[in-house]
Design a binder for these strands. Sequence first.
DNA 1: CCTCCACCGGAACTTACGGAGT
DNA 2: ACTCCGTAAGTTCCGGTGGAGG
Length: 395
Amino acid sequence: MSDIIDGIVAKVQESTIFRSRDYMRPEYVPDELPHREEQIKALGNVLVHAVKGEVPNNLFIYGLTGTGKTAVTKFVLSNLHKRAPDKFSFAYVNVRQTDTPYRVMADVIEFLGGKVPFTGLSTAELHRRLQRALNDARKVIILVLDEVDALIKRHGDELLYRLTRINGELSGSKVSIVGITNDVTFVDELDPRVKSSLGEVEQVFPPYNAVELEDILKRRAIVAFKPGVVNEDVIRLCAALAAREHGDARRALDLLRVAGEIAERQGKSIVTADQVYEARTEIERDRMHDVIKTLPFHSKLVLLSIVDGSRRERPLTTGEVFEIYRSLTRKLGLESVTQRRVSDILNELDMLGVITASVVNRGRYGKTKEIKLSIDRRSIMEVLNEDERLVSIWS
DNA sequence: CCTCCACCGGAACTTACGGAGT
DNA sequence: ACTCCGTAAGTTCCGGTGGAGG
C-alpha cells in the first residue's frame, strides 16, 4: 500500500520541471522587487521614522491588483523592522478576508498577542480591548489595512475614522495607518476627515508593462524551474497575456506556474506555449469551480434556473428566472426566497462573473435585467451536480 | 408628450445562531 | 439563567425609472 505513496513522493522529488515550486507561489515575497524601486524608496522615506521610534505619516496606496502593493509594503516594513525590532511593530490585515469591523479589530489584537473570541463581544468592548492592546505594546505600531475598499463599501468608514483618531486616546503607543486599495474611486466616498488624515501621503503603483513582467518572470523562473525547462518565448507569452489584463504580475506568475504543473503532469520535460494556453483555461475553470461550489444553496438554485431557462436562445429576464426558480423550489418542497432577494442573488452572480446581467429598458414592457450565462452550461452543471440536495430534481 | 410596465435598488427590520459576560 | 452582541441570510416596504406605445 505504502509503495503507492512512495511512488508519488519519488515523482515529486524527481520533478523534471521544477527546482523549487515555492518561488512561484503568490504569497512568496522575493528579496528583490524589480521595477518598483521608486515605490520602495517612497514608502521607505515615509516609514523610516518608525525606526527612530517616531510615528510615520499615515499612508495611502493605490494600484490595480498584482502591481506589487502588498509585496512592496511587506518588503519595506519587514526590512525596516529588522533594523529596529524594539522600536516598532506592524500588523498586516487583509480586509477582504476579514471584512467586518469586528474581525479587523480582532485580527489586530491577535497580531499584538491578545486573545479575542470569534464572536460575542460588542464592537465597543472590542474597541476598548484594542486600545488596551495597542497601549500595552508601548511602541510605534504600523497598521496595514490591505484592500480597505472592501470594508468601506460594506460597513462605512466608521472604523477607519476611529482608527485615525485613536492616537488621541493612547498614551503608551502611537499608531500609523497604511491603507491599500485597488479601487481608486473609493476615496471620494470617504468622510473628508478620514480622507485628509489617511491620505497624508499617497503613493500610486502603476501597472507593469509587458517588458517589466517579462523581466520579473525571468528572474523567478531561474530559481523556480530547472535549467532549460522554460525558454524566453514561453515567458514572453505569459508576460504578454498578463499585460493584456492590466499588467497583473500575480496573474503572470500563476500562468507560468500552472503551465509548469501541466507540463509535469503530462510528463513533458519542457514547457511550451501549449501548456501556457491550457494553464489559462485551467485557472479560469478552477476559479469558477470554487465560486460555484461555495455558493449558498438558493444561489445555486437560481443559477440552475438560469441554466435551465437559457436553453432557449434569448436572454432571460429577472421575472422569468424567478418563475423557474419558484417551480424548482416547489418541486423540492422548499420555501422560496422573494423576488427582491433573487434580484440581489443575480447581482452577486454577475459580480462573480458566472452570468452577465445588464439592465435594459423595454419601454412599455418595463425595466428589467437581461441575463445570460457567461460560462459553458455543461461545466456549471458538473459542479451543481456535486450538491446532493439538487439530485432529486432530475426526474 | 405623457403613461405606465416590470422591474431596480436603498433601507430598515427580522430570524436563527454561536458565543460572552455577569 | 439571563441578557447582550455581531453575522448571515432573508423579508418588507417603497420610492424610482427609461422608453415603447398610445
